[in-house]
Design a binder for these strands. Structure first.
Lengths: 118, 118
DNA sequence: CCAATTGTTCAATAACTTTTGAACTAAGGA
DNA sequence: TCCTTAGTTCAAAAGTTATTGAACAATTGG
């Protein structure tokens, strides 16, 4: 960890909802959920917005307590704070992600991706 | 019904989340959930904001598909669109309300209420 | 009809949020 | 060391949302 994150009990419901109420950020969260366990770096999301703008949105997600950003070399490894969110707001993240998965209007991440199948 | 409402399938997830990501509106929704079945009129929420401002927030909730407002006389009867929300986003409303119920920082509605017990 | 009650609309302003580009820092490889 | 890659910071501009008060409309009760 490196950048400022709220502790689990500092995470505020209205903040989380407001932060998720943006299509770009909701897409990021959906993608993180889909690839859970695999930490992402910012460049994964360059289809969604410019580098600068991504930095802004990822900071919002981090400051709201939705994601964790760890500095590793020159990269940031971004993960969902599922543990803390589930503890604070049981069921919320799951229902948001399920709903986001069924949302055709959300911008997609990594559409031109090479899928490495087993 | 009287005022413009989205149909169930027009309800958008980012819109709903954004609209719920405001403490005043979240308090309204929490109260509506608590008193589900009992249609409310706007004056119930005058502790939260001015009459004009309430009109604004209630319009946001209605336009996002979170509430239904029915004109009855000079009043509006406001109800949660639980049926439609549950259909579109299963589990979302329940988890939001449960989380909101545990939120000490949300402004309260009807604190000085006369509770009519059975 | 008159007055009170309930809520909306409008225009103004204040306050935030999003987006942008240019300049920057920090790490890693050649 | 120099260059590249990854991401941040900053300030400005654009856009959006929230809040206000005054004026309005519609219903209802006296």
């Amino acid at each position: 960890m490196s950048l400022p994150h709220p502790t689990a009990d500092q995470i505020s419901l209205p903040m989380v909802l407001a932060v998720l109420g943006d299509p770009t950020r909701l897409s990021i969260v959906r993608y993180l959920a889909r690839k859970e366990g695999v930490p992402m770096n910012c460049s994964k999301f360059l289809d969604l917005a410019s580098k600068t703008n991504l930095s802004y949105h990822l900071a919002k997600l981090r400051e709201a307590g939705v994601t964790r950003s760890e500095a590793v070399g020159t990269s940031r490894l971004i993960t969902l704070r599922r543990d803390d969110l589930d503890k604070r707001f049981p069921g919320l993240l799951d229902s948001v992600i399920a709903a986001a998965d069924g949302d055709k209007d959300l911008p997609a991440v990594g559409v031109s991706e090479v899928e490495v199948s087993a």
